[in-house]
Write a protein that binds this DNA or RNA. Sequence first.
DNA 1: CTAGGGTTAG
Length: 846
Amino acid sequence: MAVAFPVSPLVSATRSSITPTKQVQEDPKTTPTDSFSLGYFKNCRTLNELKQVHSHVTKKGLSHSPSSVTKLIASCAAVGTPESLDYARKAFELHNEDEGTTGSLFMYNSLIRGYASAGLGDEAILLYNEMVVAGIVPDKFTFPFVLSGCTKAVGFCEGVQVHGAVLKMGLEEDVFIANSLVHFYAECGEMNHARKVFDGMLERNVVSWTSLICGYVRRDFPEEAVSLFFEMMEANVSPNSVTIVCLISACAKLKDLELGEKVSAYIGEAGVKLNTVMVNALVDMYMKCGAIDSAKRLFTECVERNLVLCNTIMSNCVRQGQVQEALDVFRGMLQQGPRPDRVTMLSAISACAQLGDLLFGKQCHGYVLRNGLEGWDNISNAMIDMYMKCREQEMGRRAFDCMAKKTVVSWNSLIAGLIKNGFVESAWEVFNEMPESDLVSWNTMVAALVQESMFEEAIELFRVMQNEGINADRVTMVGVASACGYLGALHLAKWILTYIEKNDIHCDMRLATALVDMFARCGDPQSAMQIFNEMAERDVSAWTAAIGAMAMEGNGERAIELFNEMLRQGVKPDEVLFVALLTACSHGRSVDQGWHLFRSMKSVHGISPQVVHYGCMVDILGRAGRLEEALDLIKSMPMEPNDVIWGSLLAACRTHKKTEVAAYAADRITELAPERTGIHVLLSNIYASTGKWTEVAKVRQQLKEKGVHKVPGSSSIEVNGTIHEFTSCDESHPQKIPIALMLQEIICRLKDAGHVPDLTNVMVDVDEQEKEYLLGRHSEKIAIAFGLISTAQGMPIRVVKNLRMCIDCHTFSKTVSRIYEREITVRDNNRFHFFRQGNCSCCDHW
DNA sequence: CTAGGGTTAG
């Protein structure tokens, strides 16, 4: 007989639990020594202690008795580390070999339980199958253990088979087994199955309710969890500490502070003892609800520093962008514990990624390597992200390549990283090559196309997604809505809204904001405001979208009303919001209101105006023709004016035909941003409009020398879901002949109605007739003509143009709206124009 | 015997 197990030389004499202190009562079936020694097993808390007891038992020649092996296995399972289970497994197998038997039911149960609770679910399943093959019939204790293993090993199919075995043995009414089934299905995301098992139970205890409640919380149905909790109370089942933890977790997900406080009060009233897990859950809930003071109070009251609490605080700080605070907690942990684990490192690496702090990121990488945490794929994934966000795509790539087991998240992090570093095409290649893509991969690519201003391609990719049977979620729809907004395609916008409703896509604040913005850009402020009004909560971005909608419509007054309403509701304005507000003043031509808001930024709201805000003010003053005032403002700026500022001034000069200031502004722009070639076009437009042809020629010469060409004007119109795009003098459309005929008819009818072509904006010095021809072929006119022939009488026509409309096209549109009795909307690169019965919503100011 | 806190990518 060999001693099978290494015996630790460090026989501990220090622990009293190892030293017998009292007489154990004699057991008639075993010798006194036997029961005396074996009793030590269950006192062991670590593998080392177990090994010592085992060595003691072996010396007494007891190690082969079934009761010894059984107790050893049970104790190893209780210790619950992979090493202790390994030790138990060896004892188990050795015993079976030596005795020529299979293990007993109890041994199997203990080992399966150990594997399941150590998170080694696949081992638990294997052992269960082995046991069944060996002809040992599982009992009612086996099933809860093996089911718990199935949840942890992604063993859904195995679990369903176990369920079958349970039914076969007629054990489905056992409350422990039914509870385990509820938990199993819930963990696998099959809430309907979980619910079915729960509903079929004749007897339910607090664990049954808690398992289902917890399942709903984990699968992101916190409302369902809360209502189930109240159902449980009505059924007169008292919650215990586990139920309460689940409920707090639901409050955190719902960001329902009120309910969270009630739960907290309930704990006190019901006299439930506050334990560590509850404190952790409460701190998490308070932080997610933004009640930082309550979180801090609990934190300081809690004397014990525990790892999960530190991790809770760190992850919440990182998520809320309080990255420095997260790293402070991390530094504290390194100095005085608790020792950071892999979850800690996940937050720390994520913090470095957000900060773009490569140095600290590398230090974290070092800690990960020193502590052997790199085998965990989440850590490697976070590291890919970190290096990519620190603009170290080589390192990110290397972190990716080093991974033995790449997950979808690894691929997605790589794709997102490549896009962030400007390699969209490489990202596209990776996207097509990756072994399995998921929703996040698609969403990343849709968002990337939007970011690259490839809006039609983004919509197209969304269509491919649908053909592939991939269900879009709210993140997809944010990208799609944003693309649609830039395209200004109202039919598509309406379709998108219906799609979201039909597919039951949850409309959170971000998506709702995207939809408000989409409808605003598509020229449907009513729909935009309807969505805005239905929003349950609105942050500053939501208000900005709504104010932006008013700005695009030129409704300055309503924009200000919205702003005041926002202040009443206690939402703090930010820099971006003031851009929307000032733009609204600009389009609403409210100079005084603009000045008032601009001055209040610093004095009332504590926000220092940035260059962009000065730009808005210059725009406001410029449009009103107060060019001297605008110039003074530019000179008083605390920072250097940039090319955008001068661009605003230049644009104003065009409207008010101030060539001298225009030339000065254009020079400043050329100094600051020589690559901004569009400026020369604008300048030559200004000269052309005042008839200064020599100047025009000069500018055109400069343009030629620099190899610059005018950005071609283009207009698009959506008919029956297809977007048709036209450039000026475009003859590429399949229906070019009917379009040309229609255009000719319109021009004739306009002339009859007394319309005189306004040639001032034609930049080319050609004869009047040629000018008239060119003017008549501006892209928006072609698009409108196409709209008239391809849509039914009385239907509105909506056109999107990439440049600002010229004065002649503006008059043209007004007259067409009257003669043909059509509502026409043109969105140019600046704002909306609603033409109706010969008038425009901009009142001829744009 | 069953249930509970912190976890990366868009």
